[in-house]
Design a protein around this nucleic acid. Structure first.
Length: 804
RNA sequence: GCCGGUGUGGUGGAAUGGCAGACACAAGGGACUUAAAAUCCCUCGGUGGCAACAUCGUGCCGGUUCAAGUCCGGCCACCGGCACCA
């Protein structure tokens, strides 16, 4: 009996759509379950087989949870602002809105062919003015709370995108999107004060169920460190403050280093006797790109500021001051005390410049290298700290600094504020005007959305301004505050804006009065399970946690965290084991798979391909095994008997499989869930028949993976009219998960020597004596002394013996 | 350098400290067929053996244990993230 997937899949997709079975209702008695996948960016290339992996995974969970009696919301939308669309629009002279519309249409058709149980009635699009109205609304709130500010600073400038980038978007000194060179450029930019939330973004990781690697990566990125700020007086009469994590080594500070951009240089230019040399070094440092800076990281360079000295507060010794680009202006105070004996970088610098190295922690060999291990050393040459451990010394010196008012304990973060403006067209306009008199003023909320103006050219400008700057009639406006002449902000928001809060809009996507209505917010609360890629850990995931916390602070959302649980999928690679990409020519289009094998087979294969969290190469032959399985399942119909019970010989097998499939789905072990179903079908087929009840249960277990064919089989066999509305997830009985008899392995000294069958509730004594009476064992232990006898219930007997 | 992860057959991958290789793919052999496809059956980590079986085997070296892929210590390799962050 040949299975023709095309009419069956089409038919059930239509039925689900007509009945609206996946439309989530806000409210009701059932427990709610909010499943979320990262909404796609509708690119021009269409879907590749990597996209459906997470969609299918949470679809499996969602479908199972519906059968478990949950009120499930599983929404989807489009993260449609962004550069590829804009660049395509420029190249082909089509409006990005039209490009977006066409791409969305194609993506939607492709996704719908897979039978994912998305609630399409909640579909959103970040480029829809009714959507970005609320993105702008949040920006205005951020501004009103002092968390959005305009700041002139050196920013990352992508030479190809002609646009600034957030720190998170610069990878190895190049643009993460186009791999072009990133240079530093001083520009006035909108910034978001994510640093204000650094501590909470770390601490609240304790409130959520994320994989350890995600938590670690976020903590690492935020980069919390504890230490102290210490004031050094200088011979200019003005002080320099440094940050250190090793205040215990203060007596070993033999010089100071400040960043080339540090304002101290200009402030005391008159006192510096080698100013030309210093200026030359500053210029050279400024000209280096980020890439060059990282490349040249090894060799220490710098210039001493002649004519000025710093004074170490603990011993009043004068020490020289250098500028060097190994000290970053953006971290700490932009100045350090250098302790060459106990810091590798300072050690290298001191060797290069022939500076004194004073050991203050004994335990290493500072003739050879810096001794940086702070767990084992004992303080020396350090006055009041001598004899203490490093940890004790840190506490004592910090108290001393505080008491003498020359320093205090300090926490620092690597996290920088978020550079939020982009000099491009296809993004949300920033709803701010600049008035000579009133400064930066948000537009009234009643004027939201502030729509993107129609425009002839979306080309980025060479001057580094947004294309919007050319539309004078749009730029020139009145100040909402004083009514005088004012200019609109012409930069737009980054792609990360719309995706920082989209999960909230799904709760109430058509509300024109509020971002989310109170009823919907109180009911859905937060996302229960969010699956997404590791590549978003320090971008989208961090940004949206920040926005959510802000929305919590201003009373818009009731939870501290947006996502209760996060899981991450591995990539699907090309058949050659490389990342799938057009340029490598190894892209597999899901349309062809759905056409040839059907959506059910496609879904099964993507779930069976390997460990969900790890990357796995696509295999054209591997998918055939899943198609064979679907066909074997389909053909069970032909051997169905009228019996309405599970046969006793299969009972424990069924109970075990119900337990395993359910547990495995919840633990994202989809591959072993499917393996269990395959093993069960093998056992069923071996009997030559299947009962009605067996087929019904098996179909429900398989349904989350292969929803179309299972519906059809239930209908054909008159077992159920509709899986989703009429069936529920089967229960298992723990007591029935075990067999009456078990095979026991008999080991002698830990090596398997024989095996036998015994009743599964046999006692230890029974099992051991049965083992000893086994012919092979009896022979093997003949002439031996038994030292120890072990019985592991239902598993094995181990006899420890030695020769007489 | 720091943080996280991985290492098991020809391949993808299974194994609450308890029979290593479940479940698949590929390969080889056979049945059916005029033939092919499909399907069904058998074999499938290495070595020795006709076989029963023996023996070795989860990156490397040690350790704990009656028993280690799994736990502990020390290495090696690869992948991901961060990186002159004081």
């Amino acid at each position: 009996m040949k299975y023709d997937h095309k009419p069956v899949e089409k038919k059930w997709q239509n039925i689900w759509e007509e009945k609206g079975v996946f439309h989530a209702e806000t409210g009701g008695d059932k427990p709610k379950f909010y499943a979320l996948i990262e909404f796609p960016y509708p690119s021009g290339q269409g879907l590749h087989v990597g996209h459906p992996r997470p969609y299918t995974a949470l679809d499996v969970v969602s479908r199972k949870r519906r059968l478990n009696g949950y009120n499930v919301i599983y929404p989807i939308g489009w993260d449609a602002f962004g550069l590829p669309t804009e660049n395509y629009a420029i190249k082909n002279h089509i409006h990005p809105e039209i490009v977006t519309r066409d791409n969305v249409k194609r993506f939607k058709k492709q996704i719908q062919s897979l039978g994912i149980s998305f609630d399409w009635s909640r579909e959103i699009n970040t480029t829809d003015p009714e959507y970005y109205k609320w993105t702008q609304w949040i920006f205005i709130e951020l501004f009103n709370h002092g968390l959005a500010y305009k700041h002139e600073a050196a920013v990352n400038w992508c030479t190809s995108c002609k646009c600034v980038l957030a720190n998170e978007e610069v990878v190895n000194g190049v643009c993460e999107r186009c791999q072009s060179e990133v240079v530093r450029k001083v520009k006035s930019q909108w910034m978001l004060k994510i640093t204000e939330y650094a501590e909470r973004l770390i601490n609240d990781l304790d409130l959520v169920d994320y994989p350890e690697r995600v938590k670690a990566q976020q903590k690492n990125w935020i980069g919390r460190s504890t230490g102290a700020e210490v004031d050094f007086q200088t011979t200019t009469g003005s002080k320099l403050t440094v940050y250190t994590t090793r205040p215990d080594t203060l007596f070993g500070a033999t010089y100071m280093v400040i960043a080339p951009e540090h304002p101290f240089v200009n402030e005391f230019a008159g006192k510096i006797t080698n100013l030309d040399e210093v200026k030359a070094y500053q210029d050279a440092a400024a000209r280096k790109s980020d890439f060059e800076r990282t490349e040249l990281a090894k060799d220490k360079t710098g210039v001493r500021l002649e004519g000025v000295m710093a004074i170490n507060p603990v011993n009043n010794k004068e020490i020289p001051i250098f500028i060097s680009d190994y000290v970053l202006v953006s971290y700490g105070t932009g100045a350090i005390m250098a302790v060459p004996a106990h810091d590798t970088r300072d050690y290298d610098f001191a060797k290069a410049f022939d500076l004194p190295i004073i050991e203050v922690v004994a335990g290493g060999n500072i003739e050879e290298e810096a001794f940086t291990d702070c767990a084992t050393g004992i303080m020396v040459n350090s006055g009041l700290l001598d004899g203490l451990s490093v940890e004790e010394a840190k506490i004592k010196i910090t108290q001393w600094l505080t008491k003498n008012e020359v320093g205090h304990a300090k926490v620092n973060y690597k996290l920088r504020d978020w550079v939020f403006s982009r000099q491009r067209y296809w993004g949300e306009p920033i709803p701010i005007v600049h008035c000579e008199k009133c400064g930066y003023v948000p537009i009234p909320k009643s004027e939201l959305p502030l729509r993107l103006p129609e425009i002839d050219s979306y080309e980025p400008t060479e001057t580094g301004e947004s294309p919007l700057a050319n539309i004078t009639e749009w730029v020139n406006t009145k100040c909402p505050c004083c009514g005088g002449d004012a200019k609109r902000e012409t930069d737009t928001m980054p792609q990360w804006a719309g995706s920082s809060w989209y999960y909230l809009r799904y709760m109430d996507p058509h509300n024109s009065e509020a971002l989310v209505g109170k009823e919907a917010m109180d009911y859905w609360k937060q996302v229960d399970w969010y699956n997404g890629g590791m590549e978003h850990t320090t971008l989208h995931l961090l940004y949206s946690r920040f926005w959510h916390k802000f929305l919590y602070d201003i009373g818009v959302v009731p939870t501290k965290e947006p996502y209760a649980k996060r899981t991450s999928h591995g990539m699907i690679l090309g058949e050659n084991g490389e990342k799938m990409s057009k340029s490598r020519g190894n892209v597999v289009n899901p349309d062809e798979i759905v056409e040839e094998y059907g959506a059910d087979t496609m879904r099964m294969y993507e779930m069976f391909i390997g460990d969900f969290e790890k990357a796995a190469p696509w295999s054209a032959s591997g998918i055939k095994g899943c198609r064979r399985f679907i066909e074997r399942y389909w053909n069970l119909q032909t051997i169905m008997t009228g019996d309405t019970k599970i046969r006793p010989e299969l009972e424990s097998n069924f109970h075990k499989t119900i337990k395993k499939v359910g547990d495995d789905i919840e633990n994202i072990k989809f591959n072993t869930a499917i393996a269990a179903l395959m093993a069960l079908i093998n056992d069923i087929t071996e009997t030559g028949s299947i009962t009605k009840e067996e087929l019904r249960i098996f179909s429900i277990l398989l349904n989350p993976f292969a929803p179309h064919v299972t519906e059809q089989v239930l209908e054909d066999c008159k077992l159920s009219a509709c899986m989703i509305t009429d069936e529920s997830w089967p229960e298992y009985d723990e007591a029935k998960c075990k067999d009456d008899t078990v095979e026991i392995v008999v080991q002698i000294n830990g090596k398997t020597r024989s095996r036998f069958i015994i009743s599964s509730d046999a006692s230890s004594d029974e099992a051991i004596s049965a083992a000893k009476s086994d012919a092979k064992i009896a022979e093997a232990i003949n002439g031996m002394t038994i030292i120890k006898e072990l019985y592991v219930k239902g598993k094995l007997v181990n006899l420890v013996v030695k020769p007489n």
